[in-house]
Simulated scan of single mutants.
Amino acid sequence: MLPGAPWLLAHKSMLVVNQPRKISLYGNDYVIWKDINGEIYALPNACPHMGAMLSEGWCEVESNATSTVVCPFHALKFDGLGCTVLPDSRKKTLPQLKPLELIIEGDFIWSYGGYEPKIAIPGVLNEIANTHYFIGHIADRSVETDLLTMLLNMHDYNHQNGTHRDLFRITEVQFHKFIDDGYHSQAFYDMPTVPYSFIEKLRKPDLFLLPETIKAHLENYFPSLVIFYGEMPLGKAAQCHFFVPETENRTRTYILLFGQAKHPVFKVFGKTYLNFGKVVVDQDTDILGKIYPNTLQKIKLNNEVGMDWVRRNFENFPNVVSPNLSKSII
């Protein structure tokens, strides 16, 4: 599960004020919550009294506007440091739970899960947040698959006209370039589609937003982030896919979407673009449930360079080694 890599646990918008939520990382469960000031807290999810899930409890606002998480079993309140006040006592205890170390950058909530950092947090999200407006989040789910299988699927550029044929009607993948820069890479390819008829579009107006050729520019930050840059007549979008290893055999994924509007009407279609992202995750999740994971690969397709990049970095983590996989197809 690559201990020492940074994982984006959430965007602040994904947390409801004073509502506890369970998150998992490296096989451990935590409760995370946000107070009215936007401060974020995370503790181990098991109450140290009798093991009740704190995420099933509630939050209470304190006099200084911070909040505590309350155990649903015996109503013990824990502050962000893991301290509580026992019944018939007015004195706060020493920390009973060790907080999960969080790194907050703007609205982005990162964590190394308690391990020594081996890879720096990519700064690209801060750059995107400074140049784009935030559209929203979608498709937050846990998938019963290991991290490596998930990453191989996301970097398999040949699966677009199979896995994503429904709705997008992709007919082929025209691969152009892959740029390998260690834990950072970029891929460029085009995906012609079978156009929808005018009648089909009238019946479902969202289809007017789909281009006849999808031009893909992917920017990848191993191991946790894939950014799809899309350009439409009305604006640009940066669709950020995240991956978090919850357990050895369960990986969480979700999407944050950012936009740049060339025309004010672009913002009207924000929800539609989010739903397109949800379709992508739905289709990837579906196909991952239809794969025999231990099948020996006897056939290698062209342009599996992204998968080779994942395998190399996974096998050699935390070291970056040759070869350089950069390639161009004319």
Rank of each mutant, 00 (worst) to 15 (best):
E248P: 07
S185W: 00
Y254A: 00
D146S: 14
Y189E: 01
L167A: 10
L152Q: 09
V194L: 12
P233G: 13
Y157P: 04
L256V: 02
T163D: 09
S197M: 07
Y196P: 00
A238S: 07
R203F: 14
T213Q: 13
L167W: 09
M191C: 09
V244D: 00
I227G: 02
H159C: 10
L148F: 08
E172S: 15
H184Y: 07
G235C: 08
F208S: 15
G235Y: 01
R169A: 07
D181S: 09
Q174I: 07
M150Y: 08
N161K: 14
P223Y: 05
M191H: 01
T193K: 05
V143T: 06
S224E: 11
F242L: 02
I227K: 02
L202N: 11
S142Q: 11
V194K: 13
R203C: 13
K204D: 15
D140Q: 09
F243G: 01
G162Q: 15
F198M: 14
E231W: 09
C240N: 04
G182P: 00
T171C: 10
H159V: 06
H184W: 05
N153G: 14
P245G: 03
I255H: 00
D180S: 07
M232S: 13
R165L: 12
S197H: 07
E246M: 01
H164K: 11
K236V: 05
R252A: 03
S197F: 01
A216H: 14
L151M: 14
S197T: 07
G259H: 03
T145L: 11
F242G: 00
D180R: 03
A139T: 00
G235M: 03
F222N: 04
D206C: 13
L148H: 10
H176A: 07
N158V: 08
E172D: 14
G136P: 00
R141D: 04
H184T: 06
Y221S: 06
P195N: 06
Y196A: 04
L207I: 05
P192A: 06
A237S: 13
H217E: 10
D180L: 05
H159Y: 13
V244T: 06
A187S: 06
F208N: 15
T193W: 04
P211C: 15
F198T: 11
K177H: 11
R169H: 10
S142M: 08
V173Q: 08
Q186E: 10
S197R: 04
M232C: 14
F188E: 02
F222A: 11
T251V: 05
S224K: 06
Q186H: 05
S224G: 15
H159A: 08
F228Y: 10
L152V: 02
Q239N: 14
D181G: 04
L148R: 12
E246V: 01
N249H: 10
Y196C: 03
M150I: 04
T247M: 08
H137N: 12
